[in-house]
Write a protein that binds this DNA or RNA. Structure first.
Lengths: 193, 193
DNA sequence: TAGATTCCTTGATTTTGATCAATGCCTTAG
DNA sequence: CTAAGGCATTGATCAAAATCAAGGAATCTA
């Protein structure tokens, strides 16, 4: 249990056996069925979720009622509405499972205790957020500076697994496009050459 | 010297006088004239820069040779090419001053020493990046889920100072629009009502 | 297995923003 | 003080993506 979580943790910040045991006491496992919510509209986000297995997405609903995906999380990724989690304000994002999933949850109380008690946890979190920040910055830059086709190519080379496992209309949503447009872009990119 | 830097630091993580002195020894002041570079195409990013005074921007140049602004940094903000800074890879962003500026620089060596020696520095950095991450996420969400006019309104309410101090064509670049389009959007938003 | 969804694709039309072009204002440098 | 360059605006045209619409394949499910 928690194999992937600790594998990744140890890669970033090597832990002693005791440290690992201490951390374990603060974690909660959770299984989600496809389409089940981890976080619903307006709820307060109570957890940071690490994905051991399966896939989730976070998204907002725009005024037209369309789902706009802000993030995917496959195995090894972490997902949460961080603002809501940290401030206790109602969430702006929704999170649900796009495949049956197994999660490792860290509650707010656990998070705070861990920051106090285990210095390496703070380091882990710092590195984790730094990575997420850099990934987000890269994504934003590609949105404002690259033509759509390049963005799609980038996505397929950077995250091939996502493109393979996730339905295309979700990729379209994630890219801020309609499914029709993405389908045509794919035709151009994949089709010829 | 470093007033704003330490003011903000103390707001996030209160420091003792000694801690503050220790940190001071790792900081370097730097002044930049308008249009001067802090970081040029392909260089390795050697510093995290905190803005005490003035304004900078970071950007990329797209294939058409157009500047695409990824971030503004006014007083109290921090700017860097974090990926380049952390990995030592050549920078993907350029950074220059849009107004004469006074900076507080933290070099890579200083950063690493501070992480080792001053636990509160790690906390500061963690909080700093967390804030930046949340801001970036919010921006990305507004890009993929809101119509342009709402995005502009959001920007003016969230960062009125930026909209006031920065030339409009830079705001356009930051929003991924042409100056003409932003001008028309403004006409619609500001003009009527 | 039949029926219903979900998902992707393709075509025709409309809308939106980009591009091209010109003007006037304001700042600034010689 | 004057010329030049930077900046915002406005108009006309063009290009790209959204929308509207329909069809067909694949998957799930009763």
């Amino acid at each position: 249990m928690y194999e992937l979580f600790f594998q990744q943790f140890n890669e970033k910040v090597p832990l002693t056996a005791e440290e690992q045991e201490t951390i374990k006491t603060f974690l909660t496992p959770k299984k989600l069925r496809k389409k089940q919510y981890l976080l619903q509209e307006g709820d307060i986000c109570k957890y940071i979720a690490f994905v051991e297995k399966g896939a989730l997405k976070s998204y907002v609903i725009d005024e037209a009622g369309t789902e706009r995906i802000t993030q995917f999380a496959l195995e090894g990724w972490t997902i949460s509405d961080l603002y809501s989690f940290l401030t206790g304000e109602p969430a702006t994002y929704l999170i649900d499972a796009i495949e049956d999933a197994e999660l490792v949850l860290i509650s707010k109380a656990a998070h705070e205790e861990l920051l106090q008690q285990v210095p390496k946890y703070e380091t882990y979190i710092r590195l984790q957020i730094t990575g997420a920040y850099i990934a987000l910055q890269r994504r934003l830059t590609s949105i404002i500076s690259l033509p759509i086709e390049e963005r799609y190519k980038n996505l397929t080379t950077l995250y091939p697994t996502i493109v393979q496992r996730v339905p295309q209309h979700m990729i379209a949503s994630y890219m801020g496009l309609t499914p029709e447009t993405l389908s045509r872009v794919r035709g151009r990119v994949t089709g010829r050459k």
